[in-house]
Amino acid sequence: MGPGDGTPARPRVLWLTTGEPAGVGPELAVRAAWRFAAAGRSQTNLVLVGDPDLLEMRAREAGLLAPLASWPGVSLHPVALAQPVRPGQLNVANAGYVVQTLTAAADAAGQGRADAIVTAPVHKGIINDAGVPFSGHTEFFQERAGVDKVVMMLAGGGLRVALATTHLPLRAVPDAITRASLLRVLTILDESLCTRFGIARPRIAVCGLNPHAGEGGHLGREEIDVIEPALAQARARGIDATGPMPADTLFVPAHVAGFDAVLAMYHDQGLPVLKHASFGHGVNVTLGLPYVRTSVDHGTALDLAGTGKASPDSMFDALDLALRMTGPALHGA
């Protein structure tokens, strides 16, 4: 039923982009779609985005013999490859195809035809080699959605780790962290934990930038001049944010267990800990978009493409998390 009006609820729709065609993405996507169909979910549809012939081939290779079009709740949004694919061999001619799949999904979400996008891994290098500037899914969807700020968060192993900065050279990180940017990140993180994860009053732990969180200014002043004032502003807005805390001790299990999420200052400060705890089951989430976006926590795994040895667990988890984040309790259905 619709929310209070007696009309049937619109089915949830998730779009699953199938990633770099020479990598493991197409195989993992069809395996996830098969699992989705077998679950028999009502009021939820899954749209696979990619080349139909490629996806049918990967389904047959995985032993999933029925045509994809016959799988309950699953449909295809076709995007044609520029050239045939050989597993494990990148082809710059197909870089445009990858961008087309992402564009189709982003436009569907932007037009209200998709509640969530789940993405298989892409190869950023080959896309850039084709002359298309591309720093990652996170930045692509942000630009396509026209939002001023998004937050990258990984979830897994009992942890949620968000990032104040994403794909930047380490020497560029301090200049990218400002009071205004940190306050915006904390606001998006707090709102998303409330609305997408159902946490009434999220508790957020915030890492310092420098070793020992600056050691009172002896190892850097970013904590004093930037992070602490931003946290004070956040707390004045009702955000339960604690810090800045030394990252090396914050991630000790006894400490981190008291928080719903950790905000790390840069990519390799927070993500090695999470990936150690959850690799193969971690999920990348983009917060701040007008729709849900989740992804696997691994790359294209070209060496495993076509072998049938790639684990689908992270893809399964990414799809499951997208379902939970758009679930009835939060979706209004």
Rank of each mutant, 00 (worst) to 15 (best):
G327K: 05
G282A: 11
H298Y: 10
T44I: 14
L209K: 00
P174I: 06
A32Q: 10
P211A: 14
A305W: 02
G63Q: 07
P26V: 14
V256A: 08
N210C: 11
A155V: 15
C194G: 06
P328L: 07
G327F: 10
C207N: 02
H298W: 10
V252R: 05
A145I: 04
R184L: 06
F251D: 00
D240M: 06
T101L: 05
R41I: 12
A62P: 03
R235F: 12
V98I: 15
A59W: 04
S278G: 14
L48G: 05
Q83F: 04
G327Q: 02
S70M: 04
G258V: 11
T326C: 14
R113S: 03
V151S: 12
L170Q: 03
C207E: 10
G88K: 01
H218K: 10
L16Q: 15
L304W: 06
P328A: 15
L193M: 12
V252C: 03
Q43L: 12
E56G: 01
L289F: 09
A33M: 06
P169K: 00
D115R: 00
V98L: 14
P272D: 07
G23M: 01
V206L: 11
W34T: 01
L90C: 11
G198T: 13
D129Y: 04
S311Q: 09
A105E: 13
H212T: 06
A318N: 13
V273I: 15
E61Q: 10
Q269E: 10
A162C: 12
A305E: 08
D313Q: 11
G243E: 05
G131D: 03
D53L: 11
F316I: 07
T165Q: 02
M1A: 15
P26T: 13
Q89M: 09
H167W: 07
A130I: 04
G4M: 12
D107H: 05
W71N: 00
R196V: 05
Q269K: 03
F140P: 01
G282I: 04
R184G: 13
R203D: 05
N91T: 14
V74M: 06
L287P: 00
G146E: 02
W71F: 09
T242E: 15
V292I: 15
L287N: 03
P211D: 13
V30S: 00
D240R: 01
P290C: 02
V92A: 14
P21F: 03
A301I: 05
V13L: 07
G125T: 09
T138C: 11
A176W: 07
A264W: 02
I117E: 13
V98W: 02
A247V: 09
G96M: 10
D260M: 03
V252I: 14
A310I: 08
G131A: 05
C194S: 13
Y291S: 01
S135W: 08
T294W: 12
R12S: 14
T300D: 08
R41S: 14
D53S: 13
L65V: 08
N91V: 10
A200P: 00
L159Q: 06
L159W: 07
T294G: 15
L302A: 13
A277W: 01
R144F: 04
A66M: 06
A310Q: 04
G220F: 09
T307I: 05
Q142S: 03
N210T: 13
D320I: 02
P26S: 10
P244G: 04
V13E: 13
G332I: 03
A172M: 05
L16V: 14
R86Q: 15
S295H: 08
G73P: 07
G73V: 11
L323F: 10
H218G: 00
G6S: 07
V185S: 02
V150F: 12
